[in-house]
Design a binder for these strands. Structure first.
Lengths: 334, 334
DNA sequence: AACATAAATCGTAGCGCTATGATAGCGCCA
DNA sequence: TGGCGCTATCATAGCGCTACGATTTATGTT
């Protein structure tokens, strides 16, 4: 499979394999003359370093393992995509796994991830099984937990408080004069972050003395269809509903469609707020008020932390927490 | 980083490392008694095999490298997600890279991918640089090209003909009595598959003697906003437009929104057909007629081919081509 | 009981690279 | 001119595992 080895390059360049290895890792440590020779030989032979061998020898590979609940989810797709680009620029490969919102599944993924001796491990959220924590602690690899802030991270964390997103959403609806509120979400048992947004929302309602507020869950994944179903359910339970927060812009879009179908005025009769600021959110009818989570910023910050930790001075060896915040994007639906 | 080695397990189980290795790979080749001992030792020590070392020794790692244009694209997210799940079930890790629709970028990704001695390489589409082809040929790793059929694949291919999608779309609009047609797309220079759909569409118009047909391109990525912009552009150039094909359901959704905003009846005045059958396509207003590409089926078939090739008999060593086809989903927008 | 055969286990030799000292070559000052 | 410190280069010893052939043990046959 791998024909040309470092030895071949060394022979052609008339230096020892050590020098080739050294040049490839730290070009400045080798004389210009030798460097040029090596460069030429590499090109002539079409040499591609065997990273597996390198990883074994160096006891740490240039692999970063990312575990997200689902890459189908546009939020995570954005972050993963950004991470990939940023890390690739520094020569890191990305191994990716989907936990499907299952802590045990995540544990299995971490186990295999660890067997690659990765340069870093990126997890989604702050809740993991005890075994996962134990393995991670034993591994000494940098760990970044992303997309959630609140509890104590294992090592580093980049994200924002979902409870605060819930509060922002509730506050906005109340500010708009809405008093019969509902939070609708999908997969609220599995998706702890959505659940935290719901909790923050409900808590703020309670704190500010809103008289009527409810929460409704759709068991399947967040989708436009879930939104249409949820709107009908909540309207049955709360016919005078006037403010609706959705755990996801997809759900909100379904709500908007269903309102249009039934002739419910938005925001006239019901104000709708989403979460995610997805592709369509600015263009739909009415354009959707939503909370933007800065998924690409999360990706960039995670990449920065990892690269700093690996290449940088050990002063950074302590944990880091970066709050990327959130922003309410006020549009026409509220 | 990796404390417990196979040697430790062997010592505890009172067998040789070879037997442990053998048991881990082929449990049936070891006596039940020894197997139980090893199992117990593995658990007691919390042994996690070092796949880097294994990959080096076996000269091929259980890594599958997937290169797609962009994981942000819902089509590819679906396929990659399915692939990940299917391959993980057989103990394969997935390394993923985004080519951003650039052949040179793809070449660089293939180069690094190859340096992991992957068990297989999965590429998107059939067009690659000569250097990419050369590296792939030299590597002897199984190669699957997906999401496109037509030209001769490097090794195996799973996908469908985009030209035929274009024909299906055109035929449908013509069948609906539409005669002033347009194909609108995004990134038609970079996205060769979208370009093929456009070509098929135009060709069918020509072949069937449609009197008026045009094609319009939006330079940015496919998005809802692109749809709103494109609709206005084409209406200026072709005020009597009555049938519109979009390269992507996101673009189609933007078109639908803009039609609604301007009071253009769909399908009364203009029929709209999309591509992708995304999450919202069945729920939007009007529900969107579109072509479904079976992205998850592609993922499953690719995984099957790879696993068959690697674990299976060598009778499969020749290339394979699987046509996953496409389906017109007729809804209310046409 | 002696032998052939099969099954289970083992020892060894790397896989291709990096990290770690050790060595060689050089200019400079006393 | 000898010795010092510096830089550039090198030889060597693994990293942890798998593949392979060799060896041991169990099973069956006459």
């Amino acid at each position: 499979m791998q024909r040309v080895t470092m030895m071949d390059v060394a022979k052609l360049a008339r230096v020892s394999p050590s020098t080739v290895s050294l040049y490839l890792r730290k070009p400045d440590a080798v004389s210009q003359e030798a460097g040029k020779q090596i460069e030429r030989s590499v090109r002539e032979l079409g040499y591609v370093p065997n990273l597996v061998a390198g990883g074994l020898a160096a006891a740490s590979s240039r692999v970063v393992s990312i575990i997200v609940p689902s890459i189908r989810n546009a939020f995570f797709a954005e972050t993963v995509s950004t991470l990939q680009t940023e890390l690739a620029a520094d020569g890191f490969q990305v191994i990716q796994g989907n936990s499907e919102y299952g802590p045990d599944h995540e544990e299995a993924l971490v186990r295999t991830a660890l067997s690659w001796a990765p340069a870093a491990i990126i997890l989604t959220g702050l809740s993991h099984t005890g075994q996962t924590r134990r393995m991670l602690a034993a591994s000494s690899a940098p760990v970044v937990e992303m997309w959630e802030l609140g509890a104590e991270p294992i090592d580093m964390a980049v994200g924002f408080s979902h409870a605060e997103v819930g509060i922002t959403t509730a506050r906005h609806l109340i500010l708009k004069g809405r008093r019969k509120l509902c939070f609708v979400g999908a997969r609220l048992q599995e998706d702890r972050r959505a659940a935290q947004r719901a909790d923050g929302f409900m808590q703020h309602c309670r704190d500010t003395g809103v008289n009527k507020f409810e929460m409704l869950n759709y068991p399947g994944p967040a989708s436009v269809e879930a939104g249409t179903i949820l709107l009908n359910q909540i309207r049955q339970r709360m016919p005078d509903l006037d403010g609706l927060a959705c755990s996801n812009d997809l759900v909100a879009l379904g709500v908007l469609f269903e309102c249009q179908r039934q002739g419910i005025a938005v925001p006239g009769q019901i104000s709708v707020v989403g979460f995610g600021d997805l592709d369509f959110s600015g263009s739909c009818i009415p354009s959707l008020t939503t909370v933007r989570p800065f998924g690409d910023l999360i990706g960039r910050e995670v990449a920065r932390l990892i690269i700093d930790r690996i290449t940088g001075d050990m002063s950074d060896a302590l944990g880091h927490v970066v709050d990327t915040g959130h922003a309410l994007i006020e549009r026409s639906s509220s």
